[in-house]
Simulated scan of single mutants.
Amino acid sequence: MSASRLEDLVADYLSHLAVERGLSGNTIAAYRRDLARYTDFLAGRGLEELSQVSAVDISEFSRQLTDNHLAQASVARAVVAVRNLHSFALAEGRVAADVAHDVSPGNRPRRLPKALSVEAVEALLKSCDTTTTEGLRDRALLELLYGTGGRVSEICDLDVDDLHGVLADPQIGLRLVGKGNKERVVPLGSYAARAVTAWLVRGRPQWAGRGVVTPALLLNQRGGRLSRQSAWAVMQRAGKRAGLTEKLSPHSLRHSFATHLLDGGADVRVVQELLGHSSVTTTQIYTLVTAEHLREVYRSAHPRALRGGSS
């Protein structure tokens, strides 16, 4: 079984991705870059054929990318490209064994959600001028996002009828429809209830007659349903008014909702249900945030914390 030179093999593999698998041009370009790094690495080791490569070589390639300060996600992607190349070579009968099969691409680092402080959230909410129709709408939106932990799409999809029963009896809870049309019921706090009531009584009627009649709870100035893009713009304006320098999106309030609950002693499985996560593993990333906060407090406040002094 003859071995193929690396350049020919890579060219055949990229052609296979384009013609037989129909991958996009951007994806193929990424594979080409990653495999060019790989062939350069192997050439530097005097390896010209894939049959000469060992699992140790591939692990060293991954380590070199990391040492060159390539992002971990990019390292993982490159190793996946290499593994797929070796798998292709084996399937084509161009090598006798797939030495890359057991080489782990590594875990992509989990990005810790950026939660606002309680003070920052309060400043954001108070920045809304509730003497205006827009301010009433904005305050209702932000209070709902922070008070329920709902996704922006879930909040923008709410209709007036979804709130009437809850406002009359808060114990009913607010029904949110999440990913995959999965429903969950979340409590509606008193601050959010008051903000929504103020919007329904003093704000929404001002805009409701401007466009096509809609059951939507939150409206834009034309009388239509507030979009996710418009909700993002509301956050940007509110953050600017509040003097916040953090990068903000509606999801910032969902992150803050979860983090503040855990900081207050809520069980992670309760937070999982409130967020609508199908797995508690997804929710547990927030526990990393609160653990880091605890470490920061300890390092800054405890007299025996390590600060570079002698023991």
Rank of each mutant, 00 (worst) to 15 (best):
I172K: 15
S227C: 11
S59F: 02
A305F: 13
V177N: 12
R194D: 13
A258C: 08
D267T: 01
R5L: 09
W232L: 12
V234N: 03
V121R: 01
S4V: 01
L14K: 00
T66A: 15
R139P: 00
N68K: 13
L42R: 01
L47D: 02
R111T: 14
V166K: 06
A291R: 15
L217H: 07
L145P: 04
D138P: 02
E49R: 13
T290K: 10
N220R: 07
G239C: 11
L42N: 04
F61I: 03
E134Y: 11
S62L: 04
V19F: 13
L158E: 09
N84G: 15
S4W: 00
I58T: 02
S153L: 09
K240A: 15
G265T: 09
R295D: 12
T39Q: 01
L261I: 05
L158A: 12
F61D: 01
S24H: 14
G22S: 11
G150F: 03
S54M: 08
A3S: 04
L261V: 09
D12Y: 00
D169H: 14
A36N: 14
L65W: 02
Q221G: 05
T130V: 14
P250R: 05
E119I: 04
R210P: 03
V75C: 07
L17V: 01
L167Q: 06
R184A: 10
E49V: 04
L47C: 11
R225G: 06
A73E: 13
A233Q: 15
G150Y: 03
L244E: 09
V118W: 08
G223A: 06
L158S: 07
R77H: 05
P109W: 10
V53A: 12
A100T: 03
G189P: 07
L306D: 15
L142C: 12
V201D: 15
F41A: 07
A291I: 00
L145S: 08
L274Y: 05
T259M: 07
A216G: 08
V75I: 06
A115V: 10
G223N: 05
S227E: 11
D267E: 08
D129S: 10
G308I: 09
L294H: 14
P170I: 08
E273H: 11
V10Q: 00
G264I: 02
A216L: 11
L42Q: 04
V10F: 00
Q221I: 06
R37M: 12
L65Q: 06
L9T: 00
A198K: 08
Q236A: 13
L275P: 02
L163Q: 04
V166I: 10
A242P: 03
Y13R: 00
A231Q: 09
